[in-house]
């Protein structure tokens, strides 16, 4: 059942383009590879205002997180110092609707790797 005000939005083209721009700024235009980075997100957000995410990229210098479907895609950038025990971090983020969360890691050798997951933001209700 669902007697609710609904503000589910699909990512606008503009938001996706903005995310592409942020990635290009972060990488200086270099191509991003796959593998070597794990992005963990819930499949379905329990609450779009606080969605737990975790990034893990062994050997990374920094990891940028983007919400490709938010009005502005920036979320955060983790920079790892010499005493980081792992290049792994968790936080909680706001998602304006169902969209891909993107993580891009800059590795120590200057290369970049990328991962993305779809997080569904749903109205909820009903069940078995």
């Amino acid at each position: 059942g669902a007697g609710v005000a609904v503000t589910l939005m699909l990512p606008a083209r503009g938001a996706l383009a903005a995310a592409e721009d942020r990635i290009a700024e972060f990488t200086g235009g270099a191509a991003t590879g796959e593998g070597g980075i794990t992005l963990t997100t819930p499949e379905i957000a329990e609450n779009g205002n606080t969605v737990p995410i975790e990034v893990d990229a062994p050997g990374a210098v920094s990891i940028m997180v983007l919400a490709s479907g938010n009005p502005t895609p920036d979320v955060c950038t983790f920079n790892f110092g010499p005493l980081a025990g792992a290049q792994r971090a968790s936080t909680r983020i706001r998602l304006a609707g169902t969209q891909d969360v993107v993580a891009v890691a800059k590795m120590a050798d200057g290369s970049f790797v990328q991962a993305q997951n779809t997080v569904k933001v749903t109205i909820g209700g009903c069940g078995g």
Binding site: A2, V6, E43, T122, I123, G125, C126, G127, G128
Partner: peptide
């Protein structure tokens, strides 16, 4: 929204009820 919770082809995105 409810239909996707039932008929998303990836089971991890389903909630397992029936259609409203």
């Amino acid at each position: 929204d409810v239909a996707d919770n039932l008929f998303n082809p990836d089971p991890y995105y389903q909630q397992g009820g029936d259609m409203v």
